[in-house]
């Protein structure tokens, strides 16, 4: 599903250049649930953003579902993001003046789907994350956990190939974090490929594979025994 080879990325800051990714190689197969770990500043987000076509690598190759992702113009990048990827952010990134349902329906709007069908689909995914009753609520009327569920529903709505989550539980308390992870595990059980960036050990162990990043290189990559989130309650 994802193949990256020798990926490099530096940030230019004035005359200084900060080499963040120093040659990343890794593949993700369909249906995997991968945790990317590493200390703060190790380049996890940078890697995920490149995978998400929000940012571009300096060198190296990236194939998503066998499609080369290179030198895309913004129009095509936008279409690929819309079709192939679902994003889940630490800070939820919901649009605050849209209710839960409209937030979930947004990627469908950009797919050009008609209003009626959009609403039906969005409602379906809200049901899936257990928030059908909150459809008409604005984000600021929801708890953190609920917001992240809405964000997950939104990421799922466009039926992407891969979900990319950057510290999805970073802003949540432990209990809510586990609930969100339980939801993510459920989605993965249905076959969706998911990458999660985290620096929390317990969250990482709820995945099926942990990739460890340090100073811009993968220092460790291995299959782990998945801990089910619901085993904590």
């Amino acid at each position: 599903m994802i193949e990256i080879k020798d990926l490099h990325k530096s940030y230019q800051m004035g005359s200084n250049s900060l080499h963040v990714l120093k040659g990343i190689n890794f593949n993700v197969k369909e249906g995997e649930l991968v945790a990317i770990m590493g200390s703060s500043g190790s380049g996890k987000s940078t890697l995920l953003n490149i995978l998400g076509m929000l940012d571009e690598a300096d060198t190296g190759s990236y194939f998503l579902d066998n499609i080369p992702i290179k030198d895309l113009n913004e129009k095509i990048a936008a279409r690929y993001r819309n079709k192939f990827l679902g994003f889940i952010f630490q800070s939820f990134n919901l649009i605050n003046y849209k209710n839960a349902l409209d937030n979930v329906a947004m990627p469908l709007y950009y797919q050009g789907i008609k209003r009626k069908e959009r609403t039906d689909k969005a409602l379906h995914y809200l049901e899936k994350v257990g928030l059908a009753d909150w459809a008409t609520h604005l984000p600021n009327e929801l708890s953190g956990g609920q917001k992240q569920r809405v964000a997950i529903a939104r990421a799922l709505a466009s039926e992407p190939k891969v979900l990319l989550a950057d510290e999805p539980t970073g802003a949540l308390d432990t209990k809510t974090s586990y609930e969100v992870m339980e939801l993510i595990q459920g989605i993965n059980d249905e076959g969706k490929t998911i990458l999660i960036v985290t620096h929390e050990e317990d969250i990482a162990h709820m995945s099926k594979r942990i990739v460890n990043l340090k100073d811009g290189l993968i220092i460790d990559d291995g299959i782990v025994e998945q801990v089910r989130a619901n085993s904590y309650v």
Partner: peptide, 10 residues
């Protein structure tokens, strides 16, 4: 956010 969700430049 919109662009991450697939809003085209236009």
């Amino acid at each position: 956010i919109r662009r991450a969700l697939g809003a085209s430049p236009w």
